[in-house]
C-alpha cells in the first residue's frame, strides 16, 4: 500500500524538476538584483547621514564657509545661491516648456508634434557638461561668470523635463472636455486658458517641481558658468554665486577632513531637499491624475 502511494507522488521528477529548479534560480536572481539596488541606495543614504550628522548644527544654515578651511563655518551662502539660481532657471524653463507642450498637444499637426518631441528627447540627452560649455561660450566668454549664466544652463537642462511632463498631462485631458468647451462656442485660446490649463495645473506643477529637484543637484552646467569661490551671502545675480553642488564638488577634491564633513552636510541638505520635493510632487501627480481619469 505504501509503495503505491509513493508511486503517484506529485513531486516533479526528471526534466520537469530541472525546469522548476531553473525557474526557482532565475526568480532568485531577479530578487537578488532588486536587493542589490536597494542595498546600494541604503548604503549611500546611510553613509551620507552618518557622516553629515556631526556637522548638523544651526550654524550650518546661518554661517558662511570659513575662508581658510578648518572646522566650523556653514553653507548659508551656498543655500541662498542655489535657491536663487534654481528659482531663476525655473522662471526661464517653465513658461517656454509649458507653451511648447501646449503647442504640441493643442495646435501642432501630429508629425510636427512628433518632431518636436524628438528634439526635446535629444535635448534631454545632451551631456550636461556640454550644456555648461555651450552657456560658457554664449554668456561667459568676454564677460564674467554669473548666476544668470548658471541659471540659463540649468534652464536648458530643465526645459525638456518640464515640456515632456506637461505634454503628458495635457494628453491625459479627455477630449470630451475640449469638445464640450468648443461646442459651447468658446474659442480655442479661451479653452486652453480657461479649461485645459486649470485642469492640468497640478500635473504641470508636479513636472516643474521634479525638474527643479533634478536641477538643484546638477553640477556640470554650473562648473563653467557659476563656480568661482565667493564665500559671502549675496543676491547679486550678475556675479557668480556660491551654490551647493559646486561646493560639494570642490570640497570633495580637497584633502581637509573638515571640508569633507561640510561636503557631507551639504550633500544631506541637498538630498533632503530633493527627497521632500519629489515625494510631494509624486503625491500631487497621483492625485491630479486620479482627478483627470476618474473625475
Amino acid at each position: 500500500m505504501a509503495v503505491a502511494a509513493e508511486r503517484i507522488s506529485l513531486r516533479a521528477t526528471g526534466r520537469s524538476r530541472r525546469r522548476l529548479r531553473l525557474n526557482r534560480v532565475m526568480e532568485g536572481v531577479a530578487v537578488l538584483a532588486a536587493s542589490v539596488a536597494l542595498a546600494a541606495l541604503g548604503i549611500v543614504v546611510v553613509s551620507v547621514v552618518v557622516r553629515a550628522w556631526p556637522a548638523l548644527h544651526v550654524s550650518l544654515f546661518t554661517q558662511t564657509p570659513n575662508l581658510f578651511g578648518g572646522p566650523g563655518g556653514g553653507i548659508s551662502s551656498a543655500i541662498v545661491g542655489s535657491a536663487l539660481i534654481v528659482a531663476m532657471a525655473t522662471g526661464m524653463a517653465l513658461p517656454v516648456g509649458v507653451l511648447a507642450a501646449i503647442f504640441m498637444t493643442e495646435f501642432a499637426r501630429p508629425r510636427v508634434a512628433a518632431a518636436i518631441q524628438l528634439f526635446l528627447d535629444v535635448l534631454n540627452g545632451v551631456p550636461t557638461i556640454v550644456t555648461g560649455i555651450f552657456v560658457y561660450g554664449l554668456l561667459v566668454i568676454g564677460h564674467l561668470q554669473s548666476a544668470y549664466a548658471g541659471a540659463f544652463a540649468l534652464a536648458v537642462v530643465m526645459l525638456p523635463l518640464v515640456a515632456r511632463a506637461t505634454q503628458e498631462v495635457l494628453l491625459l485631458v479627455p477630449n470630451t472636455l475640449r469638445e464640450a468647451s468648443l461646442a459651447l462656442g468658446v474659442s480655442r485660446w479661451r479653452t486652453v486658458v480657461g479649461v485645459i490649463i486649470p485642469t492640468t495645473l497640478g500635473g504641470i506643477l508636479t513636472g516643474t517641481v521634479i525638474a527643479m529637484a533634478r536641477a538643484a543637484g546638477e553640477t556640470a552646467p554650473l562648473l563653467f558658468t557659476c563656480s568661482i569661490f565667493a564665500p559671502a551671502v549675496s543676491t547679486d545675480v550678475t556675479h557668480a554665486l556660491p551654490n551647493i553642488p559646486v561646493l560639494i564638488f570642490t570640497y570633495s577634491e580637497q584633502p581637509d577632513p573638515a571640508l569633507h564633513q561640510q561636503a557631507w552636510a551639504a550633500a544631506l541638505v541637498l538630498m533632503a531637499f530633493i527627497l521632500i520635493t519629489s515625494l510631494t510632487a509624486r503625491g500631487l501627480l497621483a492625485r491630479s491624475r486620479r482627478k483627470l481619469t476618474h473625475g
Binding site: A37, V44, A216, E218, T219, P245, I248, A267, L270, I274
Partner: peptide
C-alpha cells in the same frame, strides 16, 4: 536611486 545627485 536615480534622484541622488551625481555630485553626491
Amino acid at each position: 536611486l536615480a534622484a541622488i545627485p551625481s555630485v553626491v
